[in-house]
C-alpha cells in the first residue's frame, strides 16, 4: 500500500490542476479520473485478491447503462434523479458481480487462466448483446444522457460546467480511494493478502475463501459500476464500447503498467496512459497503439510490479518490494 502522505500529495496536485489548466484539459482530466477510479476496481480484484478478470468493463458498462437508462427516464419518469441513478448503477453492477462470482467461484471454482478466458467470453457476450438491444440504442448507444444533477426535492443543480464537475468527480474518487485504503489496512485487508499468498492455508484457519473472493469481486464491481455511471453522466453518452472487450483490455493495461498491487499506482497508471495517449496519439498516429502494446509486453516481462509502483515502492519503503 502507498503511504497516506503520498496519496495526499497526489490528490492535492489533482485539486490544483483546474487552476492552472484550460477548460478543455479539465474536462479531459475529469474523464481520466473516472478511468483511474475504474482502474482501482481492477487493482483491488486482480492485484489484491488474485482474480485476473479479463472482463472488468462489464461492470463499468452495466453501471453506465443503468445510470443512462435511469436519468433519461427509460425506466420510469419518477426515477430520473442522479442520486437514484448512481445508487441503481452501483447496485446493479454489484448484484451482477455477486451472481456471476457465486457461479464462478463456488466449490472448486475457476481461477487463473480459466477465469481470465471465461470473464473475457462473458464481456464479449454482453457487448454483443448490447449491440443488438434496440431499446438501448443497439450499436448507436444512448446519446443525450443528462449531466449529474445535485438538486434535491424538485430543485435542480445541474453540473454543466467543467470545473465544478471536475471537483465533484475528484471528491468522489478521493473518497472511494480513502475507503478502499482503509479497507485494505483493516484486518480484512490482511486476510486478503494472506489469501492471495496461499488460499489453502487460509482455509485451515477457518476463513471462507469463497466468501472472501466474492466480497472483493463485488466491491470491485461496485466501484467499476460507479465509475461507469459517472462516465456516462460526464460524457453524456453510453455505447456498447463501454462494456466489452476493448475497454476491458485497456483497463488491464493501465493497471498492469501502473502496478496492480498498489491502488494508487493503478489509479495513476490509468491517468498517465490516457494523458500520454492524448499527447502522443497525434504525434505518433497509428504507431501509438503499436508502442503501447510493446511497452505493455516489455513491462510485464521486466517489471511485473508495474512502471509506477516499482519506483514508488522504492521511494517510500522497503516494505512493498518484499510483499507479494
Amino acid at each position: 500500500m502507498a503511504p497516506r502522505w503520498l496519496a495526499g500529495v497526489v490528490f492535492m496536485a489533482l485539486a490544483a490542476f483546474p487552476l492552472l489548466a484550460a477548460d478543455y484539459w479539465t474536462g479531459q482530466l475529469t474523464r481520466y479520473l473516472i478511468f483511474g477510479l475504474f482502474a482501482m476496481s481492477l487493482s483491488l480484484v486482480w492485484g489484491r485478491a488474485g482474480i485476473l478478470c479479463f472482463g472488468q468493463a462489464m461492470f463499468f458498462g452495466i453501471g453506465g447503462y443503468v445510470m443512462a437508462a435511469c436519468t433519461m427516464g427509460l425506466v420510469g419518469g419518477a426515477l430520473t434523479s442522479s442520486y437514484l441513478g448512481l445508487a441503481a448503477a452501483v447496485l446493479a453492477a454489484a448484484g451482477f458481480a455477486a451472481l456471476l462470482g457465486y457461479f464462478l467461484f463456488l466449490g472448486r471454482g475457476l481461477s487463473g487462466a480459466y477465469l481470465a478466458i471465461v470473464t473475457l467470453a462473458i464481456a464479449y457476450i454482453l457487448e454483443q448483446t448490447l449491440k443488438s438491444a434496440y431499446t438501448l440504442g443497439a450499436d448507436n448507444g444512448l446519446s443525450g444522457v443528462p449531466p449529474i444533477d445535485l438538486g434535491l426535492f424538485g430543485a435542480s443543480v445541474e453540473l454543466w460546467q467543467e470545473t465544478p464537475r471536475y471537483y465533484l468527480v475528484l471528491a468522489i474518487v478521493a473518497a472511494v480511494y480513502a475507503a478502499l485504503d482503509r479497507l485494505l489496512a483493516s484486518p480484512f485487508g490482511v486476510v486478503l493478502t494472506a489469501m492471495h499468498g496461499d488460499p489453502r492455508r487460509l482455509a485451515f484457519f477457518g476463513y471462507h475463501v469463497l466468501s472472501l473472493r466474492l466480497i472483493v469481486f463485488v466491491i470491485g464491481a461496485a466501484v467499476a459500476g460507479l465509475a461507469g455511471a459517472l462516465f456516462v453522466a460526464v460524457d453524456e453518452f453510453a455505447s456498447p464500447t463501454l462494456i466489452g472487450f476493448g475497454l476491458s483490455t485497456e483497463v488491464l493495461i493501465w493497471v498492469a503498467l501502473g502496478g496492480k498491487e498498489m491502488l494508487l499506482a493503478a489509479f495513476l497508471g490509468a491517468i498517465a496512459v490516457r494523458l500520454m495517449e492524448s499527447t502522443f496519439a497525434e504525434l505518433l498516429g497509428d504507431f501509438w497503439i503499436l508502442a503501447l502494446g510493446l511497452v505493455f509486453m516489455v513491462s510485464v516481462v521486466l517489471l511485473p510490479r508495474g512502471l509506477i509502483a516499482t519506483p514508488l515502492g522504492r521511494l517510500t519503503s522497503g516494505r512493498h518490494r518484499d510483499g507479494t
Partner: peptide
C-alpha cells in the same frame, strides 16, 4: 499468468 498479459500486449502490437 504473465504469459497471458505479455502475449496480450503482443496481440495488440501485431494487430496494429
Amino acid at each position: 499468468l504473465d504469459t497471458i498479459l505479455a502475449t496480450w500486449g503482443l496481440s495488440i502490437a501485431l494487430k496494429q
